[in-house]
């Protein structure tokens, strides 16, 4: 049509064509893009660097002590001198706290996850439980300590152990506090694992006449086991590294009463300490001579906690490989 002038002149069009062609054919580096990418990468490298420095600090710091007296460091308990002090009571406390978490948080958490994923219908009560669990997972750990102090400590004051001596501040009170703390995380991870079980698997089991509980036991749980197991181990690792709730519940950082063996269950009714508490005590000591003890105790705690983490990931990979194989 005669009225329409071309939007761009032939000259402009030619120039644009040339520039696009240059762009497409050029080998010049896109600097802004590269710098942006490398800056993002450096944020990750920073985290890695922090990890390396941290591990290097504690490992080199603990080396003199480990090379000198690793045996007595593991088997000795509380003494006032840094040269003879060990972490045995901390190990014992952490062991029994772990048992408490496994015995209380795991079964309750997994059962709750089964209910939420397999039985629960969409009504206000179940929605409330769901919201509640997500919120519980975000409650600061020190608040769980207050719960433990107000509920478990007072509950066990006089029921287990000698009341006048322990005031209820016993291993089982600390263990139950940390079990309650890990409960929401266990429920959330177990729910995710159960949700990931394909529906046809359920339908097939129902189709051959299995009842709901049989479907859960024979199909859903075995299929979801790797995920449940991984999540539970991770939450156990988290619980064993917690110090704040134990301080509030009343773990001891100094002298402890009679020395029972590592596996003696009577420890449940006694006053207690745990590895994170022992480390807190070492770190809080002003003298230079306590540094190697703090580093060494941290190395032991990290071995336990990161060991659980690695074990969780490895087991998950192995389960998954088996299922596919």
């Amino acid at each position: 049509m005669a009225f329409v002038s071309p939007i761009v002149s032939d000259k402009t069009r030619e120039r644009t064509r040339q520039r696009v062609q240059d762009q497409l054919e050029s080998n010049s580096k896109d600097w802004a893009n590269s710098i942006f990418k490398w800056m993002l990468f450096l944020t990750l490298v920073f985290s890695l660097l922090v990890l390396m420095i941290l591990l290097a600090t504690v490992i080199t710091g603990s080396y003199p002590l480990f090379s000198e007296r690793i045996g007595s460091f593991l088997s000795n308990g509380f003494t006032t001198k840094s040269a003879t002090r060990g972490v045995f009571q901390g190990l014992r406390g952490t062991f029994w706290i772990g048992i408490c978490v496994i015995c209380f948080a795991f079964p309750v958490g997994i059962a709750a996850a089964i209910y939420l994923e397999e039985y629960a219908t969409d009504n206000w009560f179940n929605r409330l439980i769901n919201i509640n669990i997500r919120n519980l997972a975000g409650v600061p750990s020190v608040v769980y300590g207050l719960l433990g102090l107000a509920v478990f400590v007072e509950l066990f004051d006089g029921v287990v152990g000698v009341p006048t001596k322990t005031l209820g501040r016993t291993t089982i009170a600390g263990g139950l506090t940390l079990a309650v703390l890990s409960l929401p995380v266990v429920i959330i991870t177990a729910s995710e694992a159960i949700r990931a079980v394909p529906t046809p698997l359920r339908q097939a089991a129902f189709g051959v006449g299995a009842t709901k509980s049989q479907v859960i036991r024979s199909h859903i749980l075995p299929h979801a086991a790797p995920g449940i197991f991984t999540g539970s181990l991770l939450s156990l690792a988290r619980a064993l590294g917690e110090a704040a709730p134990l301080i509030v519940v009343g773990a001891v950082s100094g002298r402890l009463g009679p020395t029972t063996g590592l596996f003696d269950p009577s420890q449940l009714g006694e006053r207690f300490t745990a590895m994170p508490m022992v480390i807190t005590a070492f770190v809080g000591q002003p003298g230079e001579q306590w540094r190697p003890l703090a580093s060494a105790a941290i190395v032991i705690l990290l071995l336990v906690v990161l060991g659980f983490n690695v074990a969780a990931v490895l087991l998950r990979n192995r389960f998954e490989a088996k299922r596919e194989g």
Binding site: L51, P276, I279, V283, A294, I298, N309
Partner: peptide, 21 residues
């Protein structure tokens, strides 16, 4: 895994790191 390991470090260990490094 770098971030996952960092997430797995107990806060008391970071406390030591903050105080001593």
């Amino acid at each position: 895994p770098i971030l996952e390991v960092l997430a797995g470090i107990p806060s008391i260990v970071i406390a030591f790191f903050a105080l001593r490094f």
